[in-house]
């Protein structure tokens, strides 16, 4: 058990981060190189001002017509994504790990806040799952991979939640938690979770076209 724990919390962490960072860089750089090779004109139309205008607008809840049309979804998706990114960075237990490993004192928030954020991510995952099953326009375009990526994202939070509360099988749950976290990181560049990497670019390009050429709003 200790061997497994040491492996997943040691070498495998490095593998996960290397795959995540290298894979992400590969995704972004290869996309830009593809633009350079085949659609160079895109560089000419890209506008810093209008890219930012579009990204910022869509990053504010209820600032776009479509966010306002779907108030529940908007609240859930913003809460979900913020917690998804922020919670792992500042959970107290993670902060302790960083401190113990490298003697770096990292910020953290209280266990209660970490707990709440974890619940928000799990609840958000359930919301998205129900949405996929229930809404015809979502169900129609849903494939197996959509459920898989949802599971990949939910897993570290579910296992982390159970492990933190030590409800059952604590040592195993810890290992599952670490592995599922590593899987999520590694999956980002290679599944549709890559919308995390690519959406700023598609948003920026559409923002530039709407602002610079079409003189219109893309929200």
């Amino acid at each position: 058990m200790h061997d497994v724990y040491n492996f997943v919390s040691g070498p495998l962490v490095w593998v996960a981060f290397i795959v995540f960072i290298a894979g992400s860089l590969y995704r972004v750089i290869s996309l830009i190189m593809l633009v350079n090779k085949k659609e160079k004109f895109i560089f000419d139309y890209m506008s810093f001002k209008y890219s930012l205008r579009s990204i910022i607008r869509w990053s504010i809840p209820f600032a776009t017509v479509n966010w306002r049309k779907h108030p529940v979804l908007t609240v859930v998706t913003f809460a979900f994504h913020i917690c998804l990114i922020v919670a792992p960075l500042f959970i107290l237990a993670h902060s302790v790990l960083i401190d113990e490993s490298w003697n770096i004192s990292w910020w953290s928030f209280s266990d209660t806040i970490g707990d709440i954020m974890t619940v928000i991510v799990i609840a958000g995952s359930i919301f998205f799952l129900i949405r996929r099953v229930v809404l015809p326009e979502v169900k129609f375009v849903t494939s197996a991979s959509d459920y898989v990526i949802l599971a990949i994202v939910a897993a570290p939070f579910i296992t982390g939640f159970i492990a933190y509360h030590q409800w059952f099988a604590y040592p195993n749950m810890m290992i599952f938690h670490i592995i599922s976290g590593e899987i999520m990181l590694m999956a980002i560049p290679f599944t549709r979770l890559r919308h995390m990497l690519l959406s700023p670019f598609t948003r920026a390009y559409m923002g530039s076209e709407f602002g610079g050429v079409r003189h219109s709003k893309d929200w």
Binding site: S143, R192, H195, L198
Partner: peptide, 10 residues
Amino acid sequence: AYVETCIHCG
């Protein structure tokens, strides 16, 4: 990018 970024949200 369009095809790979689409998260099938409807």
